[in-house]
Simulated scan of single mutants.
Amino acid sequence: MKKLIALLMSVMIVLGSLAGCGSKKEETTKAQETTKAQETTKAQETTAAKEETTAAEASDLAYVKERGKLVVGITDFEPMDYKDESGEWIGFDADMARGFAESLGVEVEFIEITWDNKALELSGRIIDCVWNGMTLTDEVKSAMECSNAYCNNAQVVIVKADVADQYQDVESLSDLAFAVEAGSAGEEEVKALGLNYTPVSTQADALMEVAAGSSDAAVIDSLMAAAMVGEGTGYDELTYTVGLNSELYGVGFRKGSDLAAALNDYFKEAYGDGTMEKCAETYGIQAALIEQ
């Protein structure tokens, strides 16, 4: 009898043990299935995030919209970009940039840049575009994705008014010491002519050099000259004489950026409904949309 009882207890222990193993195996399987499901979900989320990042990286338009802000690189350049009495950036370019940002459903932020570093500022994503009366030179077009031209311009020579009659052609400029903005179309012109010059940070600095007598002459944009030089301006003792070229203004984006095409569409709309012309009249310039 004792042997029978002992045998039955042994069988029960074995069966209990087998049942326990089965339960543990089921629990392990369920845990493994849960872990796999979690890993699959995480992998899907990671893939989706990567796809969003890749899309933003591939598309500047998507990047700007996702961030909710268009960062515009400028310099103090009246009548295109300059500050009013309250310190707000205004001007033809500033106002048009605001309108473009609004059309994208984002805010606009203006950052003053060193003009000679504009391409680096773009590639480093410090700014999204250069919108500052920028001449569409071959160098600019090779380094940036540029919009269609929206304004005609020229580089002109600035001298003191009391000696202006001595400098009415290119040949008369050879003995002058010039101040020009580094990296500008003006610098390209004086270089091409082999003239003696000192690079300065901005076109406004070039004007100050001439007014102070530190330089004999400057080369700046004709639009800026019309706004800042001559009777009724802060530089009434200066005037402009020789025109060195004719050129076009455009906006620069990162190479391959889809924002350039978006801006061209905005320009067409603004030009067609009169918005661009009205803005140009406000700042005394002539807008001329030129598709390339």
Rank of each mutant, 00 (worst) to 15 (best):
Lys278Arg: 13
Gly186Val: 00
Lys160His: 10
Thr34Gly: 07
Asp236Glu: 08
Gly234Asn: 13
Ala62Asp: 06
Ser142Asp: 11
Met9Lys: 13
Glu33Phe: 05
Ile127Gln: 04
Ala62Lys: 15
Thr41Ile: 11
Ser174Trp: 14
Ala164Asn: 02
Glu102Lys: 02
Ser23Lys: 13
Gly252Thr: 05
Gly230Val: 01
Ser10Phe: 11
Ala212Tyr: 04
Met224Lys: 01
Ser23Ile: 12
Asp273Glu: 06
Ser86Arg: 03
Asp221Asn: 14
Tyr235Pro: 05
Gly183Ser: 00
Thr275Ser: 08
Asp236Tyr: 01
Val108Met: 10
Cys146Leu: 00
Asp84Ile: 10
Gln38Tyr: 04
Ala226Met: 09
Leu136Arg: 12
Met96Tyr: 01
Ser174Met: 12
Ala179Trp: 01
Val156Ser: 00
Lys36Asp: 02
Ala97Pro: 10
Val159Gly: 00
Gly274Met: 06
Gly274Trp: 00
Met1Thr: 03
Glu78Cys: 11
Tyr197Arg: 07
Ser246Leu: 08
Ser184Cys: 05
Ser147Pro: 02
Val71Thr: 14
Leu176Val: 09
Asn132Met: 02
Gln203His: 08
Gly20Met: 06
Lys24His: 11
Met224His: 11
Phe178Arg: 09
Val11Leu: 08
Lys65Arg: 10
Cys21Tyr: 12
Met1Trp: 10
Ala94Phe: 02
Asn245Trp: 09
Val242Ile: 03
Leu18Gly: 12
Glu145Ala: 01
Glu189Asn: 05
Tyr266Lys: 06
Asn245Thr: 03
Ala6Asn: 00
Gly256Ala: 05
Cys151Ser: 13
Gly230Thr: 03
Asp84His: 07
Ala31Ser: 15
Pro199Ser: 15
Lys50Arg: 13
Ala262Phe: 03
Val242Gly: 02
Glu57Tyr: 02
Val108Phe: 07
Gln292Ile: 11
Val156Asp: 04
Glu291Asp: 13
Asp81His: 07
Leu207Lys: 09
Glu26Pro: 12
Val157Asn: 01
Cys279Val: 15
Lys65Trp: 08
Tyr266Phe: 15
Ser23Ala: 12
Trp89Leu: 15
Gly91Ala: 01
Glu269Lys: 15
Leu7Arg: 05
Glu102His: 04
Phe110Met: 14
Met12Asp: 07
Gly133Phe: 03
Glu112Val: 15
Asp265Gln: 10
Gln203Met: 10
Met228Ser: 11
Ser17Ala: 11
Ser103Gln: 13
Ile290Phe: 15
Glu52Phe: 03
Asp138Pro: 13
Val14Tyr: 02
Glu139Gln: 05
Lys24Ser: 07
Ser23Gly: 14
Thr282His: 06
Ile285Gly: 00
Ala161Val: 09
Asp81Gly: 05
Glu78Phe: 07
Val200Thr: 03
Ile13Cys: 08
Thr241Val: 06
Glu26Gly: 09
Thr46Val: 15
Leu7Asp: 09
Gln32Thr: 02
Ser172Thr: 03
Val64Pro: 03
Glu85Trp: 08
Leu120Trp: 08
Val163Asn: 08
Asp138Trp: 02
Asp116Cys: 12
Ala97Ile: 13
Arg67Val: 03
Ser123Asn: 09
Asp236Gly: 03
Val108Ile: 13
